[in-house]
Design a protein around this nucleic acid. Sequence first.
DNA 1: CAGTGGTCTAGACCACACT
DNA 2: GTGTGGTCTAGACCACTGC
Lengths: 264, 264
Amino acid sequence: MASTPVFQSESSPSSDFSSFQAAVPAFSPLYQQIKGLILQSLQSGEWKPGEAIPSEMDLAARYRVSQGTVRKAIDELSTENLLTRRQGKGTFVTTHAEEQVQYRFLKLVPDGRDMPAQESAQRTIIDCKRVRAGADVSRALRLRSGEPVLHVRRVLSYAGVPTILEDLWLPGAPFKGLTAERLRAHRGAMYALFETEFGVRMVRADEQIRAVHPDEEQARWLEVSGNTPLLSVERIAYTYHDVPMEWRRGLYRTDTRHYRNTLS
Amino acid sequence: MASTPVFQSESSPSSDFSSFQAAVPAFSPLYQQIKGLILQSLQSGEWKPGEAIPSEMDLAARYRVSQGTVRKAIDELSTENLLTRRQGKGTFVTTHAEEQVQYRFLKLVPDGRDMPAQESAQRTIIDCKRVRAGADVSRALRLRSGEPVLHVRRVLSYAGVPTILEDLWLPGAPFKGLTAERLRAHRGAMYALFETEFGVRMVRADEQIRAVHPDEEQARWLEVSGNTPLLSVERIAYTYHDVPMEWRRGLYRTDTRHYRNTLS
DNA sequence: CAGTGGTCTAGACCACACT
DNA sequence: GTGTGGTCTAGACCACTGC
C-alpha cells in the first residue's frame, strides 16, 4: 500500500520579472498528478495489459483524494486509449491482444462496405535480422547512428492477394531475442506479441502518408508492376512517455482498399 | 426563456420477451439530453459560429439541472470540436474562420518540420458551375441522381508550386447563389465562407485515401507528368446530425509534403 | 472587482455484471 | 446481493479575463 503524498501547489512566489518568464503553467491540477501516478504504475508493469486496475474507490483511498478526482484522471487515460472502462466490471489496461479489431492501428479497409467484419490477413514473415541503424532509422528511434536494430520485413495478404509490404525497425535492446521463428509462431497482432513477450506497449503512433512507385523488389512482393501507384505509410509508434519503439514503412496497394480517416 | 422540461426515464416496464428485444438502450442520461438541446440551439442558429453561448450557470438555470450536468454536456461537445471553451471568457461556438490553422481539415504538411507556421496557399478557382448529380455524388450527398449540385474546381499552390487539385460538389439548395466570383472574392478558408454566407457549418468529415495516377487534364493543372503517383483524398464533410453537405476529391502532390495522421 | 470556466469534494442514487 | 463504473447534485474554492 504505497501511501503516495500528493502535492497541491502552494502560493507561487512571483518575481518582479514574472512578465519576462516563459509561460510556464506552474500549476498542475490534482487529477493530472493522479494521472501521472497511474501512468507510472502502468509503465512499471504493476498492472499489466488486459488486467483490471484497482477500483476507483480503492485508488481514491490509495492516493487520498476523492473518487471524482480519480475518475477524471481515468477519464483522460481512457480517452487516450490507455485504459478501457467496462461498466459493472472495472477498468482495464488496454491491450492489443483480445481486441475487437485485430489491427488497431491499421486503417486500410476494403472499398465499399463501411466497417464490416475485417476478414483476417495472411501474414508472411520474409525476414528478421539484426542490422545497424541508418540515418533515418536512428533519427526516428532516437538512437545513435550505427546502433543495433532489428529489421523485419513481412507481407500481408487478403484472400491470397498480397496487399501490404512492411519494413519495420525495432531498437535492439528491448527486443533482444526476437526472431523470424517467434514472429511466425505467434498468432495475432504483432503488437500483442510485443506486449506479452517483450513488455513493450505501443500506445500512440504518427503516420506520414505519400504516394509512391515501388522499386523492383517491392513490386515483386506485391505482385504489381513498377508503375503502380502505392501508398507509402511511414509510422513511428510510441510507448509510454512518447518514447519511440518502432519505425515502420508500409507499402499499401489501394486498388480494392483505401486508407480511412475521420476528421473532426 | 424557454423553460424546457427534461425527462428522466421512469422505471421501464420490462416484458417477458425482453431477452428477445433488440439491445435498445432505452436510457438516456440527463447530460445527453442537455447535449441534444444545446445541439438544437446550435443548429437553429440561436448561437452563431464565433459567438459565446450562455454561461454554464445560465444554461443550468434554463434547463433546470445542476451546473455539473451542463458541464458534462459541454465537455462532450467541446471534445467533438463543436464548442470551444476559453477559461475566464466563456464557451464559444467553434468556427472555421478566425482559426489558428487556416485549414482545419487539411492534413497535408511540409516534409521535415513538425508543425510550423503553415505558409499560406494561393488559391485559384478554376470553375464553379451547376451540374446534375451523378451516381457517386448523389450517393455521397444522399440526393436523388440528377438533382442539381454545384461543382467547384480549384488549385492550391504553395510558393508558386501547384500542389492540390480539388473537385468538390455541394447540394444545390443550401448553396444557392454560390458563384466563382464570390469564391474568388472571399479571403480565408472556404468552410468559413460556407458558415458566414450560407449558414452551413462543417462539423466532421470522413476521408478515403488512395494512390493514383492523374489523367491528362489533372496532370496539367498540377504540372506533373501523367505517371506521377498522387494521393487521392475523397472527403465527405458533414454538418449537424451527420447530414452530408460536401463531397470532395483532392489530388495531392506528395513530393515535398505528406499527409499526416495520428493514431491512438 | 465581478464573471467565466476549472478543480475538488462528499454523498446519493442508477445501470450493469457476476455470483 | 455485492461491487463495479456512470450519473447527478450542491457547494466551495481556484485560475483566468477584462472592466
